[in-house]
Amino acid sequence: MIAFVFAVALALCILLIIASLRLLSILPDRRSGPVTEITQSSRIVEITTPARSHVLFILGSGGHTAEMFSMIQSLSPESVTHRTYVFSSGDKHSARKAQNHEESVYGNAAAGEKGMEGPGAIGYRLIEIPRARAVGQSWLTTPLTCLICLSKCMDILRGGDVSALPRQMRELWKGMEFPDVVVCNGPATAVMLVYAVYIYKFFGMCKTRVIYVESFARVTTLSLSGKLLLPVADRFLVQWPQLADKYQGAEHLGFLVS
């Protein structure tokens, strides 16, 4: 009996060690990453982006969404061929902003229709997910809603909704389910989605990289989402130098909104 308990304990220990090592191997190593001294104009970036790329943008409430579209307005239409916009349930404003953005940058009228026409415009998806925490929601029920949100995030990441797309679009999204890069700037939903990314990364199912941008409104302290995502984001960008001085791993490249 003692031998059995000992064996189980040993097995658990080994499992824990392996899991920790795995986690360490997927967590970002930003020390060797880009340094903060990169200036805005002196760099020449050789653009060799893959022929097909999928970026997922997480939209938050009004302010976050406005900052997001202000930030991504200069992406060249060719660089991101597949785009997913995730917005919280009921947030029609963000959904409409995403459509406006697609229309102005890619000339797309609506997802699934003209979304596949035009140079570089392979398509975009607009996905609604339940909120991790509603404004004013009790902290008691928050773990439950967070779990529901997390499971929906996991479903989105593996492309659970792709089969429901129109046939033509389904073809285009096949094999592109996992995003190459996730871009987020603050909402609680973003935290859930990034954690979902890590669950898949843990099991080696995706290589998604995470870019987090702290809101322009944050000058000296990180938001709660920022604090939660600082250890896991591959790039953690802040828009005020005070934050880069204060938090290790935060990168300051100047204002990103414009």
Binding site: T49, S53, Q73, S79, K207, G254, F255, L256
Partner: peptide
């Protein structure tokens, strides 16, 4: 005047990240 270059800086960061992924694969 507020700088208008922010979104270009961000576009560079995103392209760098897509690049890294390309090399990874």
């Amino acid at each position: 005047h507020f700088p208008r270059t922010g979104s270009k800086v961000f576009a560079e960061v995103l392209e760098e990240e897509l690049d890294k992924l390309d090399k990874d694969t």
